[in-house]
Design a protein around this nucleic acid. Structure first.
Lengths: 344, 344
DNA sequence: AGATACTTTTAGATCGTTCTAAATTTGGTG
DNA sequence: CACCAAATTTAGAACGATCTAAAAGTATCT
């Protein structure tokens, strides 16, 4: 009788053991586990009691081998440090846990190569489906490939193929339009946009929103400046924005991170955001309330988007042939001091 | 020949199919998959070629059933919205991916009840091990229970049982001591601490660090105020801090979130952080650079802690009986303007 | 008691891998 | 060429669940 040190790999309690203890067959215990209505109440009670006592834990991997459902879904995000994506993730995780599912997480670092690697791994693990925020530069054929693999996918926040999978996102176009209108209401006519270099559908949408907003309100496009998706880069872009020949009185930013960076940069150049020049962000992350002055932003509610993506996937798992669906969470303008300055 | 709509559940390519195609046995193909040195080079080549062509993906669940290694590890964090934990998570995920493992993610919401639920689910999925940031109020017996389950665990960032599992953390004591010294070097003698109500080892460490720092530098404890772990709560605490009879000239905060909130609160009361009163945070999250004034903070490098936790777990999986180990990432003081004011 | 219709229970095959132990092939040697 | 050792390959039994189809048990009604 040898017992190795501290970490003996305990062997599992199996259906068979429970069955033996309860004096029924393995099949019956299996029915109890799956809450089938076929078993008599008294046997059910006895078996459940024994499962408790023996600390039986159903082996989901083994179950999947037979019935092809792992109750596991994969989530791929391009960036785990950006709070926008982690809020998104947290919404998706919550819905999945509530449905007694489990989340396999992976970070693509916005690299399609890594992304395919992750998908292979996920396939190997037998995930039931995937929530994908496609990495920048993802080949649209990836989605048809996933279909061939029989791997249900929901795209979220970004989209490389329209109407080929379900999609959950925020309504960026409307969000930006709201922001433009807000600025115009405060008398601004020359509005610039601080965008990013990275090409994603999220960027396209915002650009479209900007154009639409200007068109609707009759304001003037004071120019578009691009920077990297980091606050330092936005701080540096302040100079370019101020140098625009059109002299913008308000700057709309791709997101809150850039807006926060931009405000740092502006102050560095002697301009006080919210007094000399209006700054508006997008996403309404927690940071928007901690900047000085507090940042006006359009809430996109990434948590809700994540939850929505998860619900779309759950729905598809329940019925793989249901029609493709898109959801858009409604944006909300959060007015704060960074856009307080009126221009008359 | 019927083909249902778009999402036919493709059946897997199995070892058997590859074997048949290659004219060898299933066992041989299995050896190839596992890169065993037993197979002859020419058969290996042929088989690998065929695996490519047929798009064979090894079923890790089925493999685990036999060899008991799922290459899956679980990570439980108490909060997915706090950037500190998501940075941590991202460090752990990266190491796991590099080791060709996959991360099951769950959020305990700092609730021991939920936490046990998650652990059961993880057990059911056959994870190889768990990285746990124990929820507030976790019963220390949980760890011995996990040992009985044969489930290797690494505690991280928080600790409910010392030396019962591996542990990876930051050195908060040293970090706080550094912050106190920094303030004292700037002439501060009355230093207050803004703490949290939630009881965790992370809090205990910081309190200990504060006491130690004061003792070493001879500065005076200007009082400890507690608030909730949210920036709004910290903003409200500003009043209490200013009302302290000892008139602190500097305030050390539990973390950057509270520090940022506190600065908002202070400004609201007409005090300019960095001019009238020094504020120092802890963690050095990205937000520390976006506040106004930029926040002096002690970097804890949660990414590194996460990576370290993952490495500890990998090490334990390789040898379950290796001695328990603790790692601490060294803190670094990031000096910025919020603590610029000198007191002489 | 036998026929009929449920309700419960079960034996045995099966999912895709790995493991064990043995079989087969290969190559060198006397 | 017979023999032995080493190198390769393999058949078949696991692993722990679910599924199928059929068996066993119960109740109801002639």
């Amino acid at each position: 009788m040898q017992e190795s040190g501290q970490a003996m790999k305990r062997k599992r309690v199996t259906l068979d053991q429970v069955a033996k203890a309860a004096g029924v067959s393995r099949a019956t215990v299996s029915l109890v586990v799956r809450k089938s209505p076929l078993v008599a109440q008294h046997t059910r009670d006895r078996v459940e009691q024994l499962m408790q006592e023996l600390d039986y834990v159903r082996d989901i991997g083994a179950a999947r081998l037979r019935n092809n459902s792992s109750r596991t879904i994969g989530v791929i995000v391009p960036n785990l440090v950006n709070p926008f994506f982690t809020e998104f993730l947290s919404g998706a995780e919550q819905v999945m846990v509530e449905g007694d599912r489990v989340v396999l997480l992976a970070n693509s670092h916005d690299d399609p190569k890594r992304q395919s690697g992750i998908l292979q791994r996920f396939r190997g693990h037998g995930v039931d489906g995937v929530i994908l925020c496609p990495a920048q530069g993802t080949d649209p054929r990836l989605l048809t490939q996933m279909r061939e693999w029989g791997l249900p996918a929901v795209q979220s926040l970004r989209e490389v193929g329209k109407d080929v999978t379900d999609y959950a996102g925020g309504d960026y176009i409307k969000g930006i339009v709201m922001a433009v209108r807000h600025l115009v209401d405060h008398g601004h006519r020359n509005i610039a946009f601080l965008s990013v270099t990275a090409q994603t559908s999220a960027r396209d949408e915002r650009m479209a929103g900007f154009a639409r907003g200007l068109a609707l309100s009759g304001a003037c496009d004071a120019g578009i400046v691009e920077c990297e998706l980091e606050w330092e880069s936005a701080a540096q872009a302040a100079q370019q924005l101020l140098a625009l020949p059109t002299k913008p009185t308000a700057i709309l930013c791709f997101n809150d991170i850039l807006a926060a960076g931009l405000m740092v940069g502006l102050r560095h150049l002697g301009r006080e955001p919210g007094l000399d020049i209006a700054v508006v962000g997008l996403d309404d992350l927690a940071v928007a309330q901690m900047t000085h002055p507090p940042l006006t932003s359009v809430a996109i509610h990434p948590r809700k988007v994540g939850a929505s993506a998860a619900q779309l996937l759950v729905r598809r798992l329940a019925d793989p042939d249901v029609a493709v669906k898109r959801t858009a969470v409604a944006p909300v303008l959060m007015q704060r001091q960074s856009s307080n300055c009126e221009i008359r």
